[in-house]
Write a protein that binds this DNA or RNA. Structure first.
Length: 516
RNA sequence: GGGCCGCUAGCUCAAUGGUAGAGCAGUUGACUCUUAAUCAACGGGUUCCAGGUUCGAGUCCUGGGCGGCUCACCA
């Protein structure tokens, strides 16, 4: 075993041997701390020097040495643990010659345990005066550079442990993520929901249009797909009488990687019987306000240059959103009525494309055969979506874009569906679930017939049978947990909120293009 | 896959086409209230790789590698 930087690695190994030679175990098994570092700070931050002297506080703490300032026969150091830092004062004539000899062999990054009592230095910092020192573990490799910290994004993602040591923002993002997930569970558990786990390996990749990862099961000798969505299984549970279910788990989509996309991502999906999409919109407004308040202390949270207000989520129809964000270029000004005339979206898309060419924006790909609903969807994505910075619920999706949704009774061209956008991207998608088995079978058959990488290869007959057994009117929704975490931690990239995001394995390009 | 940007000591970064440097980290020494501790000394380089231009290339040119951002598919 040998790692760069080699000279420092060798030096630290030598120091470890010297510590062993003094009679210390190289890798002792445990240390009985009386409190964690944040506990010490939380409990005694308020005590002044006189109080600490009058009523001495003796304790044992352990942590990693993250700063070391030796002064000959005494030294100051900082121990880090559980996200906190505590200063330690080590003095030769207090700890004794033999402990101090070991202390001199310690390096930045090593773990030690300290027993002693609290005092305040002349600058007022709460500090533990070491009376006994325990060697706990050696860092054979140095910590990241202390001034600039760890800035290299690739190392931050590939060696996340270093990021967590060096960057408080990283620690805080993942603490908040855990808090968010705990709050999601509390929120649904308190509303008579049951948390379930459904298969990650599917024999038919259904529930969303996305390219799946393919794997293989040996004993059954069958291909399996990592799930792209849990939707069809959760609705089977509704058929089974579990009227309120939710699942927080991973989905896998064999598609792009980018600032908002990781091939495996965490989704909250929940289904509520005897409800429609409007009920879920109200529920989600409540949910978002409550998690923002919990994580950020306020329903208004900073995101880049913006302040996102999760306390007041505006609702717009897709048509209204297009009209509102219609660029000033293409004339004439657009109206909601104009968008709804049959056949009109194609001409409007052409106007947009003329404008896009002049202004160097990406064009919309439409043809004379494209249904109005599809064009509306594309116009929305091009014109409105990037501008939906404030949390906004979009309703009235074209039915063509919503194969698993019920349509509106008063307008069959529109689905009973909504999506919530914030920060310029989608974070939630919900609808009144289609529970007519014949209609569902017809739509599945269309999907399979249309083909393509993203379509299921066969109809999920068992799901149709389940619907045939009867599913109550139900509304369902998915919320992207990673993306919601991004918004609540002011993170520009999904990689800031996934501990180990997928990166290209080092050296993988050399083998690329092999068997194909 | 396209476009833009980057790659110099372990880390963060300098260096008109003219002897590759600084701070931190490291090593040695001094120092019993420091906190970017201080002071003194020392070691550390295939300037991403391969070609080319040139008397001379970290710098200019061509090709390649790796990474970031971004656009397209995707939540």
């Amino acid at each position: 075993m040998q790692f760069e930087p080699i000279d420092q690695f060798a030096q630290r190994r030598k120091n470890l041997q010297a510590i062993q030679a003094l009679g210390y175990a190289a890798y002792p098994h445990k240390f009985d701390a009386t409190s964690s570092i944040p506990q010490v700070i939380g409990k005694f931050q308020g005590r002044d020097a006189a109080e600490l002297e009058a009523q001495p506080v003796s304790l044992r703490v352990a942590g990693r040495i993250v700063a070391l300032r030796p002064h000959g026969k005494a030294a100051f150091l900082h121990l880090a643990g559980e996200g906190g830092r505590l200063q330690v004062y080590v003095k030769l004539d207090v700890v004794g010659t033999s402990a101090y000899e070991m202390f001199r062999l310690l390096d930045l990054g090593d773990f030690i345990g300290v027993e002693g009592s609290l005092f305040r230095t002349k600058t007022g910092e709460l500090t533990i005066r070491a009376e006994k020192l325990a060697f706990l573990s050696k860092a054979l490799l140095p910590l990241p550079e202390k001034w600039h910290g760890l800035a290299d994004v690739e190392i931050r993602y590939r060696q996340r442990y270093l990021d967590l040591i060096a960057n408080e923002k990283a620690r805080d993002n993942f603490r908040k993520r855990a808090l968010l997930i705990a709050e999601l569970r509390r929120f649904f558990d308190g509303r008579r929901y049951i948390e379930v786990e459904t298969p990650m390996m599917h024999s038919i990749a259904g529930g969303a249009t996305a390219r799946p990862f393919i794997t293989h099961h040996n004993t059954y000798d069958v291909p399996l797909f990592l799930r792209v969505a849990p939707e069809l299984f959760l609705k089977r549970l509704i058929v089974g009488g579990m009227d309120r279910v939710y699942e927080i788990n991973r989905n896998f989509r064999n598609e792009g990687v980018g600032a908002k996309y990781n091939p495996e991502f965490t989704m909250l999906e929940f289904y509520q019987a005897y409800s429609d999409y409007r009920d879920l919109m109200d529920l989600t407004d409540e949910l978002l306000a409550s998690v923002a308040l919990l994580l950020c202390g306020n329903t208004t949270v900073p995101f880049g240059e913006h302040m996102l207000d999760f306390g007041r989520i505006e609702r717009l129809t897709m048509h209204e959103a297009i009209v509102r964000h219609w660029p000033p270029g293409p004339a004439p000004a657009l109206t909601v009525d104009a968008l709804q005339i049959a056949g009109a979206p194609l001409d409007i898309a052409k106007e947009f494309n003329d404008w896009a060419v002049v202004n160097g924006q990406p064009r919309i790909e439409v043809g004379p055969q494209s249904p109005d609903g599809e064009i509306i969807g594309q116009l929305f994505e091009a014109v409105a979506e990037p501008n939906l910075i404030q949390p906004t619920t979009i309703v009235d999706f074209p039915r063509e874009l919503s194969p698993l949704s019920k349509c509106r009774a008063d307008n069959p061209a529109l689905a009973e569906r909504f999506e919530i956008f914030a920060g310029g991207f989608e974070i939630a998608n919900g609808y009144s679930e289609l529970n007519d088995p014949e209609e569902q079978e017809r739509r599945f058959q269309e999907q399979v017939a249309a083909g393509g990488d993203e379509a299921p290869k066969s109809v999920d007959e068992d799901y149709i049978r389940a619907l045939a057994h009867g599913m109550p009117p139900t509304a369902g929704e998915g919320i992207g947990v990673d993306r919601l975490t991004m918004l609540l931690t002011d993170s520009r990239s999904i990689r800031e909120v996934i501990l180990f995001p997928l990166l290209r394995p080092l050296g993988s390009r050399e083998e690329a293009g092999g068997p194909f």
